[in-house]
Amino acid sequence: MMAAVNKREIGAGLVVLAIGIVFLLWSQIYPPRMSAMPKLVGWVTIVLALIDIAAHFDTTLGRVLRRIAGLEIAGLSSDSEAAVEPSWRRIVIAMLWVVGYVAAIYIFGLLATTPLYIFLYMAVHGRKSMRISALNAVIVTIAIWITFEYLFHYPLYPGLLFGGQ
């Protein structure tokens, strides 16, 4: 029976495989001159993904592929980033702060959202004092406004609610 070396890494390979297949199918709808290169890249991605998946199984083929593909050098189990494994909860929260900020910029604009985002991030996520959070939010927002809008006349995005498009 084949034993998987690292299920998480195989999951990553499967995602790439799915991307390759979807991209290849998507390429089919375009005329030949527009789709020749994308199809080639789609097939190459699928082959590379299959090799990546095969390399993560503890078989003779897997070991040979790992050596050629440089996966042993990458240090699948000893990489510095892999050594510090944060929980997925923390990762999702950190990502949601970015997603939330972008969504708020889109709706309320850069100038209205930025101080609020900085204040909330520092106070709630960073657990800083209200005073430090508010001070940083005001300083950064003023610096952005002076540099971009006042000095260089770059209008900051007003947001969908205030006339942005």
Partner: peptide, 24 residues
Amino acid sequence: DVHVLVPAVIAVSFVGVYALKETI
């Protein structure tokens, strides 16, 4: 402290990106 740095850098990055072509 990264919790002071992160929101400031993210904010400046997004403003800088927007300023280039003024496209959301």
